[in-house]
Write a protein that binds this DNA or RNA. Sequence first.
DNA 1: GCAAAAGTGTTTGGATTACACCCATGC
DNA 2: GCATGGGTGTAATCCAAACACTTTTGC
Lengths: 231, 231
Amino acid sequence: MYKIEFHDFFNAAFSVDCIIFGYEAGQIKALVIKRAMEPYNNYWAIPGDLVYPDEDLPVAAERVLKELTGLDHIPMHQSQTFGHPKRHPQGRVITISYFALVRIDALHVKASSFAEEISWVPINALPTLAFDHNHILESTYEILKQKLHHEPVCFDLLAERFTLHEFQQLYEFAFEQELDKANFRKKIKYIPLIGLEEKQKNVKHRPAKLYKFDRESYQKQLINGDYTFKM
Amino acid sequence: MYKIEFHDFFNAAFSVDCIIFGYEAGQIKALVIKRAMEPYNNYWAIPGDLVYPDEDLPVAAERVLKELTGLDHIPMHQSQTFGHPKRHPQGRVITISYFALVRIDALHVKASSFAEEISWVPINALPTLAFDHNHILESTYEILKQKLHHEPVCFDLLAERFTLHEFQQLYEFAFEQELDKANFRKKIKYIPLIGLEEKQKNVKHRPAKLYKFDRESYQKQLINGDYTFKM
DNA sequence: GCAAAAGTGTTTGGATTACACCCATGC
DNA sequence: GCATGGGTGTAATCCAAACACTTTTGC
């Protein structure tokens, strides 16, 4: 055991990485940016950057995401922290990863000066990413899958109005197994959904009814304690 | 948006906090130490300390736990990271919390020079702790409760040999609801337990049979995929 | 009419619940 | 004997899986 002075401990930096998941064309995807700076110039990476000395972590995550992708007002949750001494080539940098779920169809991302390109990549076909970002992304996807079982986060990924088939496909993709249509619909019977009058258009089969998630009555049921989401 | 030099980011420190849960006398408890140094001298706190500049996080968690409590070879899992700029009075210190589950009956803790006292406190009757440690401990307890539902972590808390009633009481404590004895036993029917010949002794009622968790066959079932733990 | 997907009903077996009952031990 | 918890059986009910069937659209 060696002894160092108290102030010598204060020579680390830390960053936040923002993992943004979306759902598009039947696949769960993550947002990556192409780095336009060293280290790992030209590599795809999770959007992330260093945290300012007196900045709180969730605030930093919001700021960094906005600076790199233009995305604003996206609620994020903390995922995990990665701190291997050699994970960053330029010094000791601990990174705290945050993640968010978004509706890809409802937003427009734009690359910043530090990121020359932005792309949504399917979670099951990731390229080699900068730093330890493959590891970070994969282990955060595991957390997402856990949440899909026990919390209604699926409705953060689906478009605001969705068909029951799209809803089903999301779960089929995440858990890599086909589901029976009739049984799926029985299972979701108690999830508060609002059935809209509107239907699908321009499909070459019977148009499906569109639904919205009824957040308000879900909240009420949560407080009453007479319902717990489970899939 | 302000701009600071790259090297000026490197003036933060980080620590690990080790939350040790145990089960004793029908209650889930956490290990706390009484601090024998500033800041928060004489407060109860989660065992934790600063991480060395080139030390990996899980290694630091193990070292710190051993230094402060004498506990060694306790497998720990990362929980959450807390980084509010004002959470530590002496500078910017981010803390990464780790947690572990132990069998209180099977270990002996000893206070170090930095901790003049060690105590197990029931999770539902915590004193005011140093720093933001109440918050850290409570939110980690929520994670433990989640795990109790989906992973066989209960057997890390129970004594190696336990009665089915002790097993049931652990769940009754965690989820704050009474369970039917007969139904509880049907529910755990598929958990691989080894029934021992031995029985309880010196109890003033019919002695209960003792059981062990069959880790080996649980692992096999996991790999085969023909069983998932659920409580 | 045909293809394709939407949408619903029925049967079955297994799990969950509530509850009742008997058993072994210390005092 | 009696208090205390250990341990088991039963009937009613609910739920999930498998599968078949009808409906509505575009072409």
